[in-house]
């Protein structure tokens, strides 16, 4: 039944999903740490719009998704500095989706194409797509790892980082850009709607399992890989969309993290109230 899982045709899928998982695990770790869940949900909608635009113009999906992710990131970074973050995020999201629906309705797309843009279609990853994916993944993983300490510092104590000469706004922009890159490369595999599930589920569990940031980051990547591999096997076996397995796995990871936290609830060194020692 599963013998075809490792056929030459499926090999690209294995490679692509693994690359996506590594990037999502690394970026997602900071998404959870910085509480940027909503942004991580909104940026992929930009990628969706870009993919729709690309279909309309007949250009590469990856290019369209990349350009529109970048637009979404720019809008978030520019407007998010003033005004409320969640409001700006919601508005960018609906602008992107509405524009996407305009492209879809003006063009003559098939619903099937919309479906795969939203929910992904990993089994059809082509070899032409693989190398740009690897390049993008390397870029965004590199971006996060290079600014690892700055991201950690601005996540933990923004005012401290500002005093140390690190501009939280600049760090935030680069971070959003990393989300945009991860989104772009994950879009054809997992789909616009479920990229963020892959970004928050594994890191949420990893964060609860260990207090050391480096270990948590590694664990997050590992869990993301496990998630995509399991999803790929599930999708191959059942022919159901990959996104379903990713979404369900994210919920399971979250519950696992909550359970681990509740189970290992030892006397903490710092009580919640009344002490900052």
């Amino acid at each position: 039944m599963l013998s075809g899982l490792f056929s030459a045709f499926m090999l690209h899928s294995w490679e692509a999903t693994s690359v996506v998982a590594v990037a999502a695990g690394v970026v997602g770790f900071f998404v959870v740490l910085r509480g940027s869940t909503f942004a991580a949900h909104a940026i992929p909608q930009g990628a969706f719009t870009g993919a729709a635009a690309a279909a309309l113009l007949g250009t590469s999906t990856l290019l369209g998704a990349g350009v529109f992710s970048f637009l979404a990131v720019g809008a978030l970074a520019r407007w998010g500095r003033r005004g409320r973050h969640d409001v700006v995020t919601a508005l960018v999201l609906v602008i992107m989706l509405a524009t996407g629906s305009l492209f879809l309705s003006v063009g003559s797309q098939y619903a099937q194409q919309t479906f795969s843009l939203l929910f992904g279609e990993p089994l059809a990853v082509s070899s032409a797509y693989l190398w740009p994916t690897v390049g993008l993944a390397a870029a965004c993983t590199g971006l996060v790892l290079v600014s690892y300490r700055r991201l950690l510092l601005t996540s933990a104590a923004p005012e401290l980082a500002g005093a140390g000469g690190v501009s939280p706004a600049a760090v935030n922009f680069w971070f959003l850009l990393a989300i945009g890159a991860a989104t772009t490369l994950a879009l054809p595999v997992v789909g616009a709607l479920l990229v963020f599930s892959l970004m928050i589920g594994p890191p949420a569990a990893a964060r609860s399992l260990t207090a050391r940031p480096g270990v948590a980051l590694g664990l997050s990547v590992l869990l993301a890989l496990v998630t995509t591999w399991a999803a790929l096997v599930g999708a191959y076996w059942s022919n159901w969309p990959l996104g379903f397995f990713v979404g369900v796995a994210a919920v399971l990871w979250y519950l696992l993290g909550r359970g681990a936290k509740a189970w290992g609830h030892r006397p903490r060194t710092a009580p919640a109230v009344g002490s900052s020692r």
């Binding site: 909503f38 379903f244 979404g247 979250y254």
Partner: peptide
Amino acid sequence: DLVTGTVLGGALGLSALLLYLST
């Protein structure tokens, strides 16, 4: 936000399956 995102992700995953099945 994390809880919201997790519930939303689960729902969207389910949505993917349901839409696939109905298609």
